[in-house]
Protein backbone atom coordinates (compact mmCIF):
# COMPACT_ATOMS: atom_id res chain seq x y z
CA UNK A 1 0.00 0.00 0.00
CA UNK A 2 2.78 2.43 0.89
CA UNK A 3 5.16 1.91 -1.97
CA UNK A 4 6.78 5.30 -2.22
CA UNK A 5 7.21 8.63 -0.52
CA UNK A 6 4.08 10.07 -2.12
CA UNK A 7 1.94 7.25 -0.64
CA UNK A 8 3.37 7.97 2.80
CA UNK A 9 2.72 11.66 2.30
CA UNK A 10 -0.91 11.01 1.36
CA UNK A 11 -1.37 8.71 4.34
CA UNK A 12 0.18 11.24 6.72
CA UNK A 13 -2.15 13.91 5.29
CA UNK A 14 -5.10 11.56 5.79
CA UNK A 15 -4.18 10.85 9.43
CA UNK A 16 -3.64 14.54 10.12
CA UNK A 17 -6.99 15.52 8.60
CA UNK A 18 -8.84 12.79 10.53
CA UNK A 19 -7.14 13.96 13.75
CA UNK A 20 -8.10 17.60 13.08
CA UNK A 21 -11.68 16.56 12.25
CA UNK A 22 -11.92 14.48 15.43
CA UNK A 23 -10.44 17.33 17.47
CA UNK A 24 -12.90 19.78 15.94
CA UNK A 25 -15.87 17.56 16.75
CA UNK A 26 -14.69 16.74 20.28
CA UNK A 27 -13.84 20.28 21.29
CA UNK A 28 -16.76 21.99 19.52
CA UNK A 29 -19.17 23.69 21.95
CA UNK A 30 -22.55 21.92 22.22
CA UNK A 31 -24.23 25.31 22.06
CA UNK A 32 -27.01 25.08 19.47
CA UNK A 33 -26.13 28.43 17.95
CA UNK A 34 -22.82 26.99 16.77
CA UNK A 35 -24.40 23.94 15.20
CA UNK A 36 -25.74 24.57 11.76
CA UNK A 37 -27.79 27.62 12.65
CA UNK A 38 -29.93 27.56 9.52
CA UNK A 39 -31.13 23.99 10.12
CA UNK A 40 -31.88 24.76 13.75
CA UNK A 41 -33.78 27.86 12.68
CA UNK A 42 -35.83 25.85 10.21
CA UNK A 43 -36.72 23.20 12.78
CA UNK A 44 -37.54 25.85 15.34
CA UNK A 45 -39.64 27.75 12.83
CA UNK A 46 -41.59 24.60 11.93
CA UNK A 47 -42.19 23.79 15.58
CA UNK A 48 -43.20 27.37 16.38
CA UNK A 49 -45.58 27.57 13.44
CA UNK A 50 -47.13 24.22 14.48
CA UNK A 51 -47.60 25.39 18.07
CA UNK A 52 -48.93 28.75 16.85
CA UNK A 53 -51.43 26.97 14.62
CA UNK A 54 -52.69 24.87 17.53
CA UNK A 55 -53.00 27.96 19.72
CA UNK A 56 -54.84 29.79 16.93
CA UNK A 57 -57.26 26.89 16.34
CA UNK A 58 -57.93 26.57 20.06
CA UNK A 59 -58.69 30.29 20.36
CA UNK A 60 -60.67 30.65 17.12
CA UNK A 61 -62.85 27.61 17.73
CA UNK A 62 -63.33 28.20 21.45
CA UNK A 63 -66.95 29.42 21.02
CA UNK A 64 -67.83 26.19 19.20
CA UNK A 65 -66.27 24.10 21.96
CA UNK A 66 -68.29 26.03 24.54
CA UNK A 67 -71.52 25.53 22.55
CA UNK A 68 -70.77 21.83 22.20
CA UNK A 69 -70.28 21.62 25.95
CA UNK A 70 -73.65 23.29 26.51
CA UNK A 71 -75.34 20.98 24.02
CA UNK A 72 -76.24 23.93 21.78
CA UNK A 73 -75.69 21.95 18.60
CA UNK A 74 -77.55 24.07 15.97
CA UNK A 75 -75.79 27.17 17.33
CA UNK A 76 -72.46 25.39 17.07
CA UNK A 77 -73.18 24.63 13.41
CA UNK A 78 -74.00 28.28 12.76
CA UNK A 79 -70.79 29.41 14.44
CA UNK A 80 -68.85 26.92 12.34
CA UNK A 81 -70.46 28.38 9.20
CA UNK A 82 -69.32 31.84 10.24
CA UNK A 83 -65.78 30.66 10.92
CA UNK A 84 -65.68 28.78 7.62
CA UNK A 85 -66.50 32.02 5.79
CA UNK A 86 -63.49 33.65 7.47
CA UNK A 87 -61.23 30.62 7.08
CA UNK A 88 -62.26 28.78 3.92
CA UNK A 89 -60.36 25.53 3.60
CA UNK A 90 -59.58 25.19 7.29
CA UNK A 91 -60.40 21.55 7.98
CA UNK A 92 -60.72 22.04 11.72
CA UNK A 93 -64.25 23.26 10.87
CA UNK A 94 -64.93 19.92 9.17
CA UNK A 95 -63.63 18.05 12.20
CA UNK A 96 -65.87 19.95 14.60
CA UNK A 97 -68.82 19.69 12.20
CA UNK A 98 -68.25 15.93 12.29
CA UNK A 99 -68.43 16.10 16.08
CA UNK A 100 -71.67 18.12 15.98
CA UNK A 101 -73.32 15.74 13.50
CA UNK A 102 -72.23 12.78 15.63
CA UNK A 103 -73.90 14.32 18.66
CA UNK A 104 -77.00 14.95 16.54
CA UNK A 105 -77.02 11.29 15.53
CA UNK A 106 -76.38 12.09 11.86
CA UNK A 107 -73.65 9.55 11.45
CA UNK A 108 -73.36 9.75 7.62
CA UNK A 109 -72.61 13.43 7.71
CA UNK A 110 -70.29 12.94 10.67
CA UNK A 111 -68.29 10.33 8.72
CA UNK A 112 -68.07 12.52 5.62
CA UNK A 113 -66.86 15.57 7.54
CA UNK A 114 -64.35 13.62 9.58
CA UNK A 115 -62.94 11.98 6.44
CA UNK A 116 -62.43 15.42 4.86
CA UNK A 117 -60.63 16.60 8.00
CA UNK A 118 -58.35 13.56 8.32
CA UNK A 119 -57.45 13.55 4.60
CA UNK A 120 -56.15 17.09 4.96
CA UNK A 121 -54.65 16.72 8.41
CA UNK A 122 -53.60 13.23 9.57
CA UNK A 123 -52.76 14.67 13.01
CA UNK A 124 -56.39 14.02 13.97
CA UNK A 125 -55.69 10.26 14.05
CA UNK A 126 -52.20 10.58 15.49
CA UNK A 127 -52.06 9.77 19.18
CA UNK A 128 -48.77 11.71 19.46
CA UNK A 129 -50.36 14.94 18.23
CA UNK A 130 -52.05 17.57 20.39
CA UNK A 131 -54.81 17.60 17.74
CA UNK A 132 -55.50 13.88 18.29
CA UNK A 133 -59.22 13.03 17.94
CA UNK A 134 -58.97 9.27 17.66
CA UNK A 135 -61.57 8.67 20.34
CA UNK A 136 -64.22 10.70 18.54
CA UNK A 137 -63.38 9.26 15.13
CA UNK A 138 -63.32 5.71 16.48
CA UNK A 139 -66.73 6.22 18.08
CA UNK A 140 -68.23 7.59 14.86
CA UNK A 141 -66.76 4.76 12.77
CA UNK A 142 -67.75 1.97 15.15
CA UNK A 143 -71.32 3.25 15.49
CA UNK A 144 -71.74 4.53 11.95
CA UNK A 145 -70.40 1.70 9.84
CA UNK A 146 -72.79 -1.09 10.92
CA UNK A 147 -75.75 1.25 10.41
CA UNK A 148 -74.45 2.29 7.04
CA UNK A 149 -73.99 -1.30 5.88
CA UNK A 150 -77.56 -2.15 6.94
CA UNK A 151 -78.92 0.81 5.00
CA UNK A 152 -76.91 -0.10 1.94
CA UNK A 153 -78.30 -3.62 2.07
CA UNK A 154 -81.77 -2.10 2.07
CA UNK A 155 -80.93 0.38 -0.72
CA UNK A 156 -78.33 -1.30 -2.93
CA UNK A 157 -76.78 0.99 -5.52
CA UNK A 158 -77.34 4.18 -3.50
CA UNK A 159 -74.38 6.23 -4.72
CA UNK A 160 -74.25 8.74 -1.88
CA UNK A 161 -74.35 5.98 0.74
CA UNK A 162 -71.58 4.13 -1.12
CA UNK A 163 -69.46 7.29 -1.00
CA UNK A 164 -70.03 7.59 2.76
CA UNK A 165 -69.05 3.94 3.13
CA UNK A 166 -65.79 4.69 1.29
CA UNK A 167 -65.17 7.56 3.72
CA UNK A 168 -65.78 5.14 6.58
CA UNK A 169 -63.33 2.61 5.17
CA UNK A 170 -60.78 5.39 4.77
CA UNK A 171 -61.17 6.39 8.43
CA UNK A 172 -60.97 2.73 9.51
CA UNK A 173 -57.73 2.37 7.58
CA UNK A 174 -56.26 5.50 9.16
CA UNK A 175 -57.29 4.36 12.64
CA UNK A 176 -55.65 0.98 11.98
CA UNK A 177 -52.30 2.76 11.56
CA UNK A 178 -49.63 1.75 9.06
CA UNK A 179 -47.34 3.86 6.96
CA UNK A 180 -48.58 7.08 5.37
Amino acid sequence: MFQDRFDRLLFAGLLLTVAVLAGLLITAPIDASHVSGRVMDRQLEQEMSYQARIAFLTRRYQPVIVQLGQGALPEALLTLEEISRDLPGEVHSDLLRGDVFFRMGQLDRALTNLAVAVRQNPDYVDSASPLNQRQLIDAVVSQGMPQLRDRLRAQPGNRSLEQVLKDGYYLQSRLAGGCE
Partner: peptide, 13 residues
Protein backbone atom coordinates in the same frame (compact mmCIF):
# COMPACT_ATOMS: atom_id res chain seq x y z
CA UNK B 1 -54.19 -10.76 11.81
CA UNK B 2 -57.32 -9.08 10.51
CA UNK B 3 -58.83 -10.55 7.37
CA UNK B 4 -60.51 -8.06 5.08
CA UNK B 5 -60.34 -5.89 2.02
CA UNK B 6 -61.32 -2.59 3.58
CA UNK B 7 -60.06 -0.53 6.47
CA UNK B 8 -56.62 -2.15 6.48
CA UNK B 9 -53.65 -0.20 7.88
CA UNK B 10 -51.63 1.71 5.30
CA UNK B 11 -53.59 0.41 2.33
CA UNK B 12 -55.85 1.73 -0.41
CA UNK B 13 -58.33 0.03 -2.69
Amino acid sequence: FQLGLYGQPGAHT
